[in-house]
Design a protein around this nucleic acid. Structure first.
Lengths: 341, 341
DNA sequence: ATGAAAGCGCTAACAC
DNA sequence: GTGTTAGCGCTTTCAT
């Protein structure tokens, strides 16, 4: 019985090619993988016949021997967050360049999903890049010992990582606000499970201290526009004149929320975001934010992963940093009390 | 010699499990795949041991017999176009639900890359969803005969497809403009290789005719913000009062371009986009545009692909349509001559 | 209900 | 330079 797959004709196999050229499968294998181990004339002939038959070796069968699938997995907490777009593209570029296929999975911010996806990734790919993992450090450390892993924007003992240096740029952001005359600012936090949340807060607070600014922390919020919009109450409750948010999505939401309340940005209130996602320069006012190349981070992470795969050892530079800087746009201005003078 | 992969311990195999429970690999295979073919007590024991050993069958080895990789490929011309984000997520959802892995590839608008990626996809996955293919119809038709394919937003003879019904919504868009009093409108075209470009134009022209509007076609442009911004000249050259663009990216770019020229949207000029991407409601003015669920389209396409895989036959409904509608925001208003009265 | 054995497509020793 | 052979992890007859 033909069965369900009868409609798609099976691929030509190495045997078909071998039969067609009247040689053994081994010779065909060599001709294709290591042409120098074979008479150049036969190599040529085999290549040609393989082409005619549309043959190319099956990655799966090859895997049995080599243990390599030539695929990498990119694990993301939320594909729809624009921040990840460039990361995806950077990683994809680098993977393709090295002849690897990229598998993309979205864990939808769920640690459980991340676990199961990683378990699957172990079987189907040679390694994984984790963009903002939600799993505990210990688990990631253990996993990384058995399965090549590179973490993006989260530093974990024993796990190679690439981190965008947003803390440095956030210090610039505070400088910027201080320079404008702001005295009372705050940080609108991200998810508790986000490794970077605390780092960003520390960087901001330290810089605020340097300038003698009052700086409070406005709890933990989801990294979404909705969450930013909902934060309006907390933001307007005190006597703040500026807020730095965990990410741009929050900043955009907050901006919308303030506008709806009739609070003008930046005249009455300044906002600084983080990530410089698509859309940050489309709003009115455009968003002052921290720009770091997620694309570069994706490239570096994949490169590190590939290095690990090639050498079998952790990459030379275990923890890498990609630069970031403050991009000043229109959502920041002197606070009302200064502007009025 | 240990070799490069010495650091990662190999997975437990079916043999390990078999040895651990003192039974044959065949029984283990059955216990896991068809528990009903095995004594329930042994099935239970095997499952438990497999768990302890962290064993699960290798997809690659399984592929040798079944010819199935349990992976689907999603082929996109440009990952960074926000339009595709929801498509990605919808497809991913559906794939995950059915126990499939999703492989994502970005062809960067290149037909050559698309070809080579599809060739690779044939080996590594069971089928592919094409989001806006740039390949000729004939090639896709032939390929689809050998490899399960579903096309999104492009209808091809013999290839199952899911199309977002933007033409219907664009007719609404023209109605909307006519209702506001516009008499001379235009369509800013997309890439020539985009199947939908002509369809959109036809829909707009037909609707314009119905209303007795003058409607011109403003050539072919890349589906990017830059291209939209560059189109300002052409748009302002005539005596137009409104433009409908191929997609939102162009619309956003055009809006920016007009603003820079001091032309007020919507008071002096109305703009309607297409896709309702992230950012379309962030701009000021917010963008009137055509909203269609790319997520739904991704889901439907993947569902159709899975049906094809399960039954071996083309899906019941070869060509599906996902609804779309006009979302009226702030980038459209009566033209100056009407407003003045 | 379970086991033995063959074989999927390919590669890598090991002959010759 | 090329062929033979064994075997990767798994499923599936075919026996028992």
């Amino acid at each position: 019985m033909p069965g369900p797959r009868a409609t798609t004709r099976p691929h030509a196999t190495i045997k078909d090619v071998a039969a067609a050229v009247g040689m053994s499968p081994a010779t065909v294998s060599r001709a294709l993988a290591r042409p120098d181990m074979v008479a150049s004339s036969t190599a040529e002939r085999i290549r040609q016949v393989a082409d005619e038959l549309g043959y190319s070796p099956s990655p799966q069968a090859r895997w049995l021997h080599t243990g390599r699938s030539n695929a990498l997995t990119l694990v993301l907490p939320d594909i729809t967050n624009p921040f990840f777009f460039d990361l995806i593209r950077g990683a994809q570029h680098e993977a393709a360049r090295a002849g690897y296929t990229q598998v993309l999975v979205d864990t939808e911010e769920s640690a459980a999903q991340e676990r199961s996806h990683l378990a699957a990734a172990r079987k189907t790919s040679d390694g994984a890049v984790l963009g903002g993992s939600r799993l505990p450090d210990t688990m990631l450390g253990e996993l990384a010992a058995r399965f090549p892993l590179v973490s993006v924007n989260r530093r974990i003992r024993g796990v190679p990582s690439v981190t965008i240096d947003t803390p440095a740029a956030l210090a610039q952001a505070v400088d910027h606000l201080a320079g404008l005359g702001h005295r009372r600012i705050a940080y609108l936090g991200g998810p508790e499970s986000a490794w970077f949340d605390d780092r960003r807060w520390q960087a901001i607070r330290a810089a605020a201290d340097d300038h003698g600014l009052t700086c409070s922390r406005l709890g933990h919020r989801a990294p979404t526009m909705i969450a930013g919009e909902e934060a309006v109450e907390g933001v307007t409750a005190g006597d703040l004149t500026a807020v730095i948010t965990y990410n741009d999505l929050q900043a955009l939401g907050l901006m919308r929320g303030l506008e709806r309340r009739g609070i003008a940005v930046p005249d009455q209130f300044s906002i600084i975001g983080c990530d410089d996602i698509f859309g940050a320069d489309l709003t009115k006012p455009t968003l002052t934010t921290v720009t770091g190349s997620a694309e570069l981070a994706g490239e570096l992470a994949t490169k590190a992963l590939l290095e690990r795969l090639d050498t079998g050892k952790p990459p030379r530079k275990l923890h890498q940093t990609a630069p970031a800087h403050l991009t000043i746009r229109d959502s920041t201005a002197p606070p009302p009390e200064v502007a009025r003078r």
